[in-house]
Design a binder for these strands. Structure first.
Lengths: 199, 199
DNA sequence: GTCTATAAATGGATAGAC
DNA sequence: GTCTATCCATTTATAGAC
């Protein structure tokens, strides 16, 4: 098959996935707005015309990446919701979010940095708000069961725990020393029991 | 005195502080790179020439704001270091960081979103790295005393707790319902003891 | 799948008058 | 302190050839 990746080497011969991947990586290094199409063509070693043969626009690259991030998070949330008890649902969404965030780190990073500067960004932020809202419901439910401190506002508690979770995109590297599965367990432990050793 | 703010009303009559304040606010709404000088002049209701009478460049506005953020954080760190015990030093820097972050929210927000796209950004990131490094030392010290779980890498623990703290800039509003002093205590409690109710 | 060439708009910044 | 007018580099994107 000539579609084989190894056989394509010699002169570029990029496909759409190459462009998306390189674009997302560059957006994360420099920021979406600070990255020009020229920056991207330079990194890929092609001209603008070649790039526009694969994608419709710079914004489309962002759109595709954001969809991958949101699809992953929403899927993790749906799975978490199938668990029978509030405690299981809460731990499932914490684990699930960390898993998606490490598995699709570049795409989720873009999502978390959005400012709503275009229709695409605003639509993605709206999907994210719905996700956050449902997670807040899970936290509130866990509070009612006495699994989470009830003296904290559910919204604040959710923001704090997801602040911790989401910050992982800023330093986690797939090829680094931190095991993503272990990290999920550690975050769950710190979120529920804190940094202080249990007596 | 004609320098009085109320008496300046009528036609714009801005000063440098007005420009900085509006610039930082706009940078936070849209992102630094996505904000054009024209966006800023539109918000202020003046022309570009008027704006450039007050500041040398768009980058200078960023520079001034970043210095305010970093000065505040470094000051809080120095104060924390004067405390006699590791436990006090750790709680002091957590409280201090939350205090600076709520008091200078716009400036710190800019700092936390930097990508290192210019010399100014890289210099600020270097100062921030030094801050993070010293805080990690405080966490390591607290681990040695048994005040913080020793099974966690000090760097990971620091990143998780500051992930929680720093995420506050994304939703805290000075005129909102959350009291900044209370928030500091709550974050300290959640960071040390977790979300689960203590037995 | 990639190229050269170019369009059309917007970017940051300045000159010089009032 | 603000204006009009302008410079020039860079931006996203396209036309049409190979």
């Amino acid at each position: 098959m000539p579609t084989n990746r190894a056989q394509r080497r010699g002169r570029p011969g990029h496909d759409r996935d190459d462009v998306i991947r390189a674009g997302v990586q560059l957006f994360n290094e420099q920021g979406y707005d600070a990255t020009s199409v020229s920056d991207l063509t330079t990194r890929l070693g092609v001209t603008k015309s070649a790039l526009y043969h694969h994608v419709d626009s710079k914004a489309q690259i962002l759109q595709i990446a954001l969809d991958e991030a949101l699809d992953g998070l929403e899927e993790a949330l749906q799975t978490a919701l199938t668990h029978p008890t509030p405690g299981e649902r809460l731990t499932a969404i914490v684990d699930g979010a960390v898993r998606v965030l490490t598995a699709r780190q570049p795409q989720v990073t873009l999502l978390l940095r959005l400012r709503g500067n275009s229709d695409i960004e605003m639509a993605a932020l709206e999907r994210r708000r719905r996700f956050d809202h449902t997670v807040t419901d899970l936290v509130r439910e866990a509070q009612a069961e006495g699994l989470v401190r009830a003296d904290l506002d559910a919204g604040v508690a959710t923001r704090l725990i997801f602040g911790m979770i989401n910050s992982v995109v800023e330093w986690y590297r797939p090829d680094g020393p931190v095991d993503p599965a272990l990290l999920g367990a550690e975050i769950r432990a710190v979120a529920l029991d804190g940094l202080r050793p249990r007596p």
